[in-house]
């Protein structure tokens, strides 16, 4: 390699490094700033001269949040709604995705495209009739009703992701099990599902993150403490005039901790699952 080429490579490396660093800083700065704010006492947040490094580190915002707001209830509701959503999407999604992955039947392609196209429907257009529907069924302001509403946008996504994971499992293993006398159901339960375990976990995490974060449906469909999820509760904490920045930041940090942990655990498999179609072109 000629020295000029090597010099070019080295300066490009430097440029690449700086560019990536700039993007990382852009991405992390708001998270870092919120964390710092959540550790400052109120007097140090509302101050004439901005403190970049907290001078009195305190957990009082977290204590206030936990004791004085109904954050524990909100989090419980969110956990319940997220779990039900995950359960519905994963059970029903697995059956459908397995069928799409293993069988060639009439209308298969059309149905797959259909499950892709329904993402185009405006959420607001669905929210209104769903609201009426849930009210008629007595499911309004219930955690199950909200979870059911979440399946509108999560189930189709879930099916597509799971199909990708199932496609990656060699057909031969299933056929071998069939030769050994397994039924199709038996092969699904004993062979395919265990092999697709990481894919199932990944899809579950993805569904959970989206359901955990969801705000619009929750805002519209929950009216009482019994089913309100934390994004709605956090938003309602914002008063008319004085913003409770300390507890608000603490609430933000607490509610993203599970996301960060789960995301870190499955990120590699998640990236693969989401981009499977992209690589094939």
């Amino acid at each position: 390699m000629p020295p000029s080429q090597r010099r070019l490579d080295r300066s490009l490396d430097l440029f690449t490094g700086l560019l990536v660093l700039a993007f990382v800083a852009f991405c992390l700065f708001p998270l870092g700033w919120t964390l710092l704010t959540s550790l400052k006492p109120e007097a140090d947040i509302v101050t004439a001269t901005l403190q970049y490094i907290p001078q009195h580190v305190t957990l009082e915002n977290y204590v206030t949040l936990w004791q004085q707001s109904d954050f524990p209830t909100l989090v419980t509701n969110s956990v319940v709604v997220t779990s039900i959503t995950g359960l519905i999407c994963l059970t029903i999604g697995t059956l459908a995705a397995y069928s799409f992955s293993r069988y060639r039947f009439r209308g298969r392609g059309k149905l797959l495209i259909f499950y892709l196209v329904i993402r185009m429907f405006p959420v607001v257009l669905m929210i209104i009739p769903l609201f009426i529907m849930m009210r008629n069924l007595g499911l309004l302001d219930s955690r199950f009703g909200l979870a059911l509403a979440y399946t509108t946008f999560l189930l189709p996504l879930c099916i597509w992701m799971l199909k990708g994971f199932f496609d990656a499992i060699p057909l031969e293993l299933e056929e071998a099990a069939r030769i050994d006398g397994c039924t199709r159901l038996g092969a699904l339960v004993r062979v395919v599902l265990p092999l697709a375990r990481s894919g199932l976990v990944t899809t579950a995490v993805f569904v959970a993150i989206v359901a955990w974060n969801e705000f619009l449906f929750a805002m519209m469909m929950t009216t009482s403490q019994g089913s309100r999820t934390w994004p709605v509760g956090l938003q309602l904490m914002v008063g008319e005039f004085q913003l409770p920045w300390g507890p608000l930041s603490a609430g933000g940090i607490l509610s993203i901790i599970p996301i960060i942990i789960f995301f870190a655990l499955v990120q590699q498999s998640l990236i693969r699952g989401l981009t499977a179609g992209a690589v094939k072109g």
Binding site: C27, V46, T47, L243, F263, A264
Partner: peptide, 26 residues
Amino acid sequence: VLILLPWVMPSVVAGHMWALMLDSRL
């Protein structure tokens, strides 16, 4: 991994984070 983090952030938290950072006084 870090660059992907904002994408999994809930919009409510993202909104509050930036509202604080862009606040007219603080």
